[in-house]
């Protein structure tokens, strides 16, 4: 087991996402000040599938928010595909990012039908003008996509998404997030709210989609087995920094129990 610091290197060809010298303190200057990132660095290469584990409050979601633009940083630079995106708004960055949240409600619109949700997502990157929102011709294509979920959603295309179960909504959200080609896929505990069986199905689907599209992926999970089994790089976070960065080869030598040991170790260190 080797601890490695992420050295930031500017504009190197293979580096897809680079977080350089990120500083972030929540509620700065108030009593509830939460200093989280202090010179935080991360480099993810093109095509990498990174799994991230870490204790509650270690800053995993915040790291993803920083990349996506939902959280403003105090200092540092965020470089995606060689371009500094720090100044871009969240919706502007979304043009090349697909994202699935822990909350199944966040990825879909409950009062729109499955078909309407998919049509909207399918139009990402193009203008949303006064042309009809649903193209009848695409229905078959959408059904084919839904069939691979094996949840029977292809027969419910005109059903409002709000009446689906959490697992069904999450599966749909995952499908929707990659409907148009994205360069970066961000998954934040996207199987956490699901029962073990559906969770397994969604995880397999995730893996298949990522392999199919070859999209660079960062996946946060609390499931240590998923973290070891999937992906080709493993990060463990603690108190706004990394305590483990294992490459594909190193990762193969890790067992879930090793990770658990390390997890306990850091937890004991800070006395909880």
């Amino acid at each position: 087991m080797k601890n490695r610091n992420n050295e930031s290197s500017n504009g190197s060809a293979g580096h897809y996402v680079q977080l350089q010298h990120i500083y972030k303190t929540f509620n700065k200057g108030s009593i509830n000040e939460v200093p989280l990132f202090h010179d935080f660095n991360l480099t993810v290469d093109k095509g990498e599938f990174v799994t991230v584990v870490g204790s509650n409050g270690s800053g995993k979601t915040t790291m993803l928010n920083v990349i996506c633009g939902s959280t403003q940083i105090d200092d540092g630079s965020i470089i995606v595909n060689g371009k500094d995106v720090s100044q871009l708004k969240e919706h502007q960055r979304a043009s090349f990012i697909g994202r699935v949240f822990q909350d199944p409600g966040k990825g879909t619109c409950p009062s729109l039908t499955i078909l309407e949700n998919m049509s909207l997502a399918d139009n990402k990157g193009r203008p949303y003008g006064l042309t009809p929102g649903i193209k009848k011709r695409r229905r078959d294509q959408y059904c084919t996509l839904l069939e691979q979920l094996k949840l029977g959603l292809e027969d419910k295309t005109d059903v409002k998404v709000g009446s689906l179960s959490g697992g069904q909504r999450q599966a749909l959200a995952l499908l929707i997030s990659t409907m148009v080609p994205v360069d970066l896929l961000i998954l934040d505990e996207h199987t956490a709210a699901l029962d073990p069986r559906i969770s397994e199905t969604i995880m397999e689907l995730t893996d298949r989609l990522i392999a199919e599209k070859g999209v660079t992926t960062i996946m946060v999970t609390h499931n240590l087995r998923y973290a070891v089994e999937y992906g080709n790089r493993l990060l463990m976070m603690h108190e706004g920094g990394f305590v483990l960065d294992a490459s594909e080869d190193e990762k193969k030598t890790h067992e879930v129990s090793d990770l658990l040991d390390l997890f306990n170790e850091i937890s004991i260190e800070c006395g909880n």
């Binding site: 697909g98 994202r99 949240f101 966040k106 729109l112 909207l120 990157g125």
Partner: peptide
């Protein structure tokens, strides 16, 4: 319905 969804479709 869901502003995050709108943001997600850029």
């Amino acid at each position: 319905d869901n502003q995050q969804f709108v943001t997600s479709v850029s």
